[in-house]
Design a protein around this nucleic acid. Structure first.
Lengths: 139, 139
DNA sequence: ATTAATCCTATCAATTTGGTAGGAAATACA
DNA sequence: TGTATTTCCTACCAAATTGATAGGATTAAT
């Protein structure tokens, strides 16, 4: 299941992307419009900023803005920041690979085999989608 | 991430499927061979039995066995029993559909849109795989 | 009877999740 | 220069979930 963090993060990104201008958007505006607890959202946007997806500006007229065009923001990156590894087991993860200590031979491991297929198909979806596609900005 | 429960369950099913005969297999044998805590595995096999995937026999010479041929056991069913809904959000779940209370219109919801694609692609993998395929029984 | 297995209920510690609180730091503008 | 406004940071917390363990009841073979 998708965590609330990821869900809120995606909704917030969509909200920002759908704005006409690229002026900074205040947290409270997003929180109210998307029905997200403000303080929680604050921490989520902060991690999105630290990962380089969002930029921020402090003080009056401050807020968060996209660092790139929506069409340039790949969902693989967004999902990795918000939800963590895309793979369902570390032994098939591209970016967070880890060997299972209970598994003598990965090539013979049925779980590995199945989850590799799942990873590939999920990755394909995220690679084919940018923030623009999935928030419907250029339609 | 895949829960240990699911991982252990899949490994256990594979172990049973790879046995030449369909004689009941004891929990302790699976636990030892697959490095799974015995008591935990007991509870997992129990839910697999209650869902109809496994059968069991009590007492001496007892154990668990497959209710159907490996090639008849679809991974969609197995995954739903072990891991729960395949969809990452209830609002795109086929079997456990639930409306989001914070979402006025699903057709406009970007999360819904993206997760629908993910669900479809994951479902395709699970529908294309039976226990036989993924444990390599008929190769 | 005895032994060997599943079945069932209850409990529990550790981790993760989803959030809140309070204030420090930076910025715009009067 | 002061004040309002916003992000930023740290710490904390309650509830739910996960990954087990314990102990015995039940069933079946010999």
């Amino acid at each position: 299941m998708l965590s609330k963090k990821t869900k809120y993060g995606l909704k917030a990104l969509t909200y920002i992307a759908r704005r006409a201008t690229n002026e900074p958007v205040r947290v409270i505006e997003i929180a109210e419009n998307q029905q997200i607890p403000q303080k929680f959202l604050e921490s989520i946007l902060l991690t999105l900023r630290k990962s380089g997806i969002l930029g921020s500006k402090k003080g009056k007229h401050g807020g968060y803005y996209l660092r790139n065009q929506p069409a340039q923001i790949k969902m693989t990156d967004v999902m990795r920041v918000l939800e963590g590894p895309i793979a369902m087991v570390p032994c098939v993860s591209l970016n967070y690979y880890e060997k299972c200590d209970d598994c003598p031979d990965e090539d013979l491991c049925s779980v590995n085999k199945l989850m590799l297929e799942v990873r590939d198909s999920t990755l394909k979806v995220f690679r084919n989608n940018t923030l623009a596609d999935f928030s419907g900005v250029n339609e």
